[in-house]
């Protein structure tokens, strides 16, 4: 099977995020980057399919020089090849243009199945896998917690958790699958595989190589523009009501209604 995994490099969850000077971006200074948590499940599922049915796993990521480190981590987990998509014109791409860029790269490759994490833990838009399936004209299953693949019948069965029940989807391959955290337990890269990852192919493709012109990508091609970015307001100090329980209760209800406006 030819398996493709799209990954994103995101700030580590333990990093203290600051807004950059322009008020539109995260300040990258001092930020530690990791492979998006949900993408780990995608990479793991891809490697498991390869181990079962044979084939090749190609990991793709759009992003600047630093994403090479994330791609190497996936190679160390067991992926075979990696492709970095970058061009200065890609800067400030929204989920749609990101999916467009990814789709152009994928169209140059043979593929039977495409995995994405269900969402990136930085922007949380959950939309790239959906756009990607549309742009490639493929069936899709999102937030998948269990997956069965039959490469001979070219079919998949995907299980999704929905409120109070489980939804089972059957579809044809090739398809786009977005992965949810229950799907598997991602492996740790072994130390020898980290050393070997360096010898695996890591290709770079720019806008021209993907047949894209700069008007289609980046901020120009985007349907969504970031106007400003700010941190949530710091939590104000809690109020402690003291005194007679009856009085306190009355006061609490009044505050909830008039000040907090939640009831």
């Amino acid at each position: 099977m030819n398996i493709i995994v799209c990954i994103k490099q995101v700030p580590d969850t333990t990093t203290k995020v600051r807004v950059g000077k322009d008020g539109k971006h995260i300040d990258p200074g001092g930020v530690k980057f990791i492979v998006n948590t949900y993408d780990d499940f995608a990479v793991e599922e891809a490697i498991r399919l390869k181990e079962r049915f044979g084939g090749e796993v190609t990991v793709i990521s759009m992003g600047p020089e630093r994403v090479k480190e994330a791609l190497r981590m996936c190679l160390a987990m067991g992926a075979d090849k990696a492709i970095q998509l970058w061009d200065p014109a890609f800067e400030d791409s929204d989920p749609y243009t990101t999916a467009l860029i990814l789709s152009k790269a994928i169209q140059q490759l043979p593929y039977d199945i495409i995995f994405c994490g269900k969402q990136a833990i930085d922007r949380d838009t959950m939309s790239v896998p959906v756009y990607l399936a549309e742009l490639l004209g493929l069936p899709q299953a999102t937030l998948v917690v269990k997956l069965e693949v039959d490469p001979n019948a070219r079919k998949f069965i995907a299980y999704r958790d929905i409120e109070g029940a489980k939804e089972v989807i059957e579809g044809l391959l090739p398809a786009v699958i977005s992965t949810q955290w229950k799907l598997n337990e991602p492996r740790y890269p072994t130390l020898p595989n980290i050393m070997k990852a360096k010898k695996k192919e890591l290709k770079e493709l720019n806008a021209a190589a993907l047949g894209l012109d700069s008007a289609q990508v980046g901020e120009k091609g985007s349907r969504v523009k970031v106007l400003s970015m700010e941190l949530p307001p710091p939590r104000s100090k809690g109020k402690i009501l003291k005194g007679d329980p009856r009085e306190v209760c009355r006061e609490l209800v009044r505050l909830l209604r008039e000040e907090a406006k939640v009831i």
Binding site: A76, L191, K198
Partner: peptide
Amino acid sequence: TEDQKLIQQTVREF
């Protein structure tokens, strides 16, 4: 080096 960083990071997480 990249290898050293990746091994350090992997071992730390592990």
